[in-house]
Design a protein around this nucleic acid. Structure first.
Lengths: 107, 107
DNA sequence: TCTATAATTCGAAACATGTCGAACTATAGT
DNA sequence: ACTATAGTTCGACATGTTTCGAATTATAGA
């Protein structure tokens, strides 16, 4: 049930250790954009520009942070026309939850 | 249900972003020392020296890492004679799990 | 009180990260 | 082809992090 090594998991936590990156990730794990209705139970998709809105960071910095989240295996990214859309990898989200809930049993 | 700010949570993840620190934390969240029997369902206690065994890091480095885990609110530490014992704060462990499992509902 | 063990603090060196602006690539529309 | 919009890459700089060894503090036992 624990498919990741300590090093891989540390990489995931490293990706979430920056407030800006954690903010971006958090935006992707909530199903609705602020002020809109919740249409599905799945994780939402945002394009890069939308994700950075209200964060007051340069586009280059935003791009860097999303690349880090991607490198850690936390999000996927794909070009769609002029935009690049991002979404969370659900498996990874599960794996992380398991790490904290199943910690009390010996490996 | 979400009692921590983005910044506080980022601090927690930062503390877990180093493989050595994550290893130490993981050792504290498993109930048994390797090769011993599981006596209780609670998180285990280890003294600083035991925690560092087999990790090949200097005592000063070990001390630094545990201080970081403590600063992030992930572990407690208390002197017991010549030793200092460490244990995980259970609430925090829960909080972290919740972050990953309840992400799909709007705040 | 002296010694041994356990752990922390301090300062320094090497390395990693976060941030920006400027220059670049990709796409869509005119 | 030209232009505007969306993102990325690159180089540079400031700031943080990891690690160590040496010096220091705390405690227990002889």
């Amino acid at each position: 049930m624990s498919n990741y090594s300590i090093d891989e998991r540390a990489q995931m936590f490293r990706a979430l250790s920056n407030p800006h990156r954690l903010g971006l990730f958090h935006r992707l794990t909530t199903c609705c954009a602020p002020g809109t209705e919740c249409s599905t139970a799945e994780a939402s998709q945002f394009c890069v520009g939308e994700l950075g809105e209200g964060m007051d960071i340069a586009p280059s910095t935003l791009s860097h942070h999303l690349k880090e989240l991607h490198r850690a295996g936390l999000i996927e990214m794909q070009r769609r026309g002029k935009n690049v859309v991002c979404w969370v990898v659900p498996d990874t989200l599960n794996e992380l939850a398991v790490f904290f809930t199943s910690g009390f049993t010996p490996e």
